[in-house]
Each structure stands twice: as structure tokens, then as C-alpha cells.
């Protein structure tokens, strides 16, 4: 009797705990449900819808339910028959490599400089960060005027040194480097701030100890700064790569993809395919492939940099 009462008491206790846990779980679900609903509506549904449209032919003028099914035709066309898709992909890689590579080096350099005790340090930090918080389209318009072949400031400066006017945005070989330069100028302040935060998180006593052992500036940088900045660098590279692969505003405002598609990027081509040629099936096909590329590249980057950690 006593045993059974004890057992019964234990069972009741377990049940009560379970009920409490269930209630807590319910409360947890209730708290996350707005975020969950937001995620489902604004992330998962659009993604699934994009996938669905990419296997159909749709011009956005006909009801969704009447889209003809195309299977993998859109993907086959893009991969095998569309030379512009290949070119815009190459252009995007060119832009990404140039922008990410140079941005990381320059932003790190700037961060090191602005981490040292120089005059007007807060001013310089704010000045370099300002382009990042300026509207990208406004930046592109300003730079379009600066790089204007006839009236632009850039050629005005070159002319002072006897250098002939350069077709920065309309020259076949100059348009993409010019666009990369604008992108670097636009984003460098943000990455600089991240590097600055990373630098300031490195304990000063490590440098002091190394200095006592006779380490020079280069050794300090190579043996302490770079290894300890690796997580920051990983973040900067991943974020910058993601942003660069999706570049749209600069070609849209600066060059419209020209000259001869030299600055036509994947997302700009995707935009034209969808909204100018009304081929939403192909455009979403491009979006899916870009998503896969970004996913794979991000995973590779994470793995490579973590392995070194």
C-alpha cells in the first residue's frame, strides 16, 4: 500500500513536471511563433515559390495557375544555350574577386592605420564609414558624374598631369575595374569598422610579451594580428562575397551593364530577364543557381578558414 502510494505520488509528480514542461514549451513556441510565421511567409514561401516558378514558363501577366510546366528546360537553356548567362556569371565572379580581394586588404590596412594613435582619428573613422550609410543609388549617381569622360572630376585631375581623358565607364577594359573601385569605396568603411573591432579585441599583453621577446612590427602582425583576426576576416570575406555576388545597384545606375555586357552582372541580367523580357521562369532559374553558388562558396569559405583555425 505504502509502495503503491509512493509510486502513485511519483507518477503524479512526473505528470505535473511534464505538464509544466509542456506549458513552458508552449510558452516558448508562442514566443517564437511570430518570428516563425515571419520566416515562413517571407523566407520559406518565397523560396519555394521561386523553385516552383523556375520549372515553369511565366510572364507574370497570366494567372499563376495557368503557368505551363517546363521541367528543367529553364536550367538547361541557361546552362547550355544562353551565352549571356555564362558571361554575366563570369562578370559577377570577376567583380566578386576584385571587390572582396581588394576590400579586405584595404579595409584591414585602414583599420590598422586608424587603430594607431593618429591625429583626428574619430574624424577619419567617421569619414571612411560615411559612404556605407549613404544610399547606394546616390553613390552611383555621384560616381557617374565623377567618372564622366568629359566633365568628370577624375579626368579633370588626370588632365592636370597631362593624362588624356579616360572612358572609365564606357571603355571595354575600364568599365568593370571602375565599378569595382566604386564598390570598394562604398563598402570599405563598414569592413574597416569590423576589423577595428577585431583588432581591439586582441589582448594588448600578447603584443607586449612578443615585443619583450624582440618581435618586430611585421612579426607582430603576422604572428599575432593575423591569426587572431581570422574569425573577423572570415566574417568580412563571407559577407562581402555574398554582397558582391548579388550586386545590382551599381550596374543599374552606373553602366546599365555596358559596354557590350562588360559590367552586366548576374542579378542585373536576372532583373532584365524578369521585368524587361517577362521571362520569370528563367529569371527564377538564375536565382536558384545563384543561391546554390552562394551556398557552396560560403560553405567552402567557412570550411577553409575554420580548418586553419
Amino acid at each position: 500500500m505504502g509502495t503503491s502510494a509512493a509510486t502513485s505520488g511519483a507518477t503524479t509528480l512526473v505528470r505535473t513536471r511534464r505538464r509544466r514542461l509542456n506549458r513552458r514549451a508552449l510558452a516558448g513556441y508562442a514566443f517564437v511563433s511570430p518570428a516563425l510565421v515571419f520566416l515562413l511567409v517571407f523566407a520559406l514561401f518565397p523560396f519555394l515559390f521561386t523553385l516552383w516558378v523556375s520549372i515553369h514558363d511565366w510572364n507574370m501577366l497570366t494567372p499563376i495557375g495557368t503557368m505551363p510546366f517546363r521541367g528543367l528546360d529553364n536550367y538547361r537553356y541557361l546552362l547550355n544555350e544562353d551565352p549571356l548567362f555564362r558571361q554575366t556569371f563570369k562578370n559577377t565572379v570577376y567583380f566578386t574577386v576584385g571587390n572582396v580581394g581588394l576590400s579586405v586588404i584595404l579595409a584591414l590596412g585602414l583599420a590598422l592605420l586608424l587603430n594607431s594613435p593618429i591625429k583626428l582619428r574619430p574624424f577619419w573613422r567617421a569619414a571612411f564609414f560615411a559612404p556605407y550609410i549613404t544610399a547606394p543609388v546616390a553613390i552611383a549617381i555621384v560616381w557617374r558624374n565623377i567618372l564622366d569622360p568629359d566633365y568628370g572630376l577624375a579626368n579633370g585631375v588626370l588632365a592636370q598631369f597631362g593624362v588624356p581623358a579616360q572612358p572609365f565607364l564606357s571603355g571595354l577594359n575600364q568599365a568593370m575595374p571602375s565599378m569595382i573601385a566604386v564598390a570598394i569605396w562604398q563598402g570599405i568603411g563598414y569592413y574597416m569598422i569590423i576589423f577595428l573591432a577585431g583588432l581591439q579585441a586582441i589582448p594588448a599583453d600578447l603584443y607586449d610579451a612578443a615585443k619583450l621577446d624582440g618581435a618586430g612590427a611585421w612579426t607582430l602582425f603576422r604572428s599575432i594580428t593575423v591569426p587572431l583576426l581570422r574569425p573577423t576576416m572570415l566574417f568580412v570575406i563571407v559577407i562581402n562575397t555574398l554582397n558582391s555576388l548579388q550586386v545590382f545597384d551599381l550596374p543599374y545606375v552606373l553602366t546599365q551593364g555596358g559596354p557590350v555586357n562588360q559590367t552586366n552582372t548576374l542579378v542585373f541580367y536576372m532583373f532584365n530577364t524578369a521585368f524587361k523580357f517577362l521571362r520569370m521562369g528563367r529569371a527564377t532559374g538564375m536565382a536558384v543557381m545563384l543561391f546554390l553558388v552562394i551556398l557552396v562558396m560560403t560553405l567552402i569559405q567557412l570550411r577553409l578558414l575554420r580548418e586553419k583555425e
Binding site: 549571356l84 571595354l172 555596358g258 559596354p259 557590350v260 555586357n261 532584365n272 524587361k276 523580357f277 521571362r279
Partner: peptide
Amino acid sequence: PGAQEIKTALEKQIEAAWYGQ
């Protein structure tokens, strides 16, 4: 049919010839 797409394709190819590509 596809007038805008054809027009853009022709534009890009004419430009390629203009630029000596």
C-alpha cells in the same frame, strides 16, 4: 513576339561589332 528581347539581343551584337569584338 519577343520584340524587346530581340531588340536587346540585336543591340548587344551591334555594339560588339562597334567595339571591334
